[in-house]
Design a protein around this nucleic acid. Sequence first.
DNA 1: GTTATTGTAACAAGAGGGGTTACAATAACA
DNA 2: TGTTATTGTAACCCCTCTTGTTACAATAAC
Lengths: 148, 148
Amino acid sequence: MQVSSRFTIAIHIFSCIKTFEGEYKITSDFLSSSIQVNPVIIRKLLGQLKEAGLIEVKRGSGGASLAKEPGEITLLDVFNAVESLDGGKLFHFHENPNPDCPVGRSIHPVLDGRLEQIQRAMEKEMQSITLEDIFNDTNKYLEQTSHS
Amino acid sequence: MQVSSRFTIAIHIFSCIKTFEGEYKITSDFLSSSIQVNPVIIRKLLGQLKEAGLIEVKRGSGGASLAKEPGEITLLDVFNAVESLDGGKLFHFHENPNPDCPVGRSIHPVLDGRLEQIQRAMEKEMQSITLEDIFNDTNKYLEQTSHS
DNA sequence: GTTATTGTAACAAGAGGGGTTACAATAACA
DNA sequence: TGTTATTGTAACCCCTCTTGTTACAATAAC
């Protein structure tokens, strides 16, 4: 069980858009060469991000751009756009606990709240980080490493 | 991407041990009838929990029991026992970002800390819940629903 | 020695991740 | 209008993981 690389690739995409907008046309091929992942994979991801209203993609002429301010897009938005959790739930529950057993009968009502509690903790942390934070960190890092 | 049902099944196992210890012998068949999952799956899970030092399993004569106090086993212990994260990392990073691109070069150093931050938030929440909490909730639930 | 049980091996089906080729639809431009 | 670059998708592929299943040797108790 691991979050798929779609998540980090999506953030990489946003960083590229921000860094190279105006300078280059952000096509799936351009992104592919920075991320080093197949352009079709990139296009599918662009589709998911577009559907979530986070970016705009121009068909035919080509090119992706942000649909919102970087400070208004959180890592949770990105996560939810590219990582489809079945029923929105992070934890897969075993389907048929035996209702004739006291434990089987109570396991769902007892655990459901706890699992939500854990999921919310993760989501809250993701929500506290915006793409602006990532962009700032990137700039800082590039400054530090360039003039050394 | 979903946490596998091994996690909730493992917690179900602990609840059964606690509820029926002394009264019944907790075999994989017994657990199977409460959880309604194949006994071999249960045995593999019991193996993982045993290896993590959370339970003891008697070979031949049969039966599982707790190896620690319920208050000393957290949901994080259970999670780590049954859910092997590759390299201990919750997030799978795309392998080969292009080092010749400023974004490709910086994405790892910039993101790694953030991803850890999110993972730690989830782990911290898991660590705050012990099996004792679950057992208490179960008892409360069964009391409430029985005399109504 | 018989019995119940665990620990494992071996296999299978299904889902999902990641990759690839191919091509129709679209938009810009010569 | 024809050409070109690009997106959006379909149709595959292979691999891993999850879950389920049968079978059986090893073990422990009686």
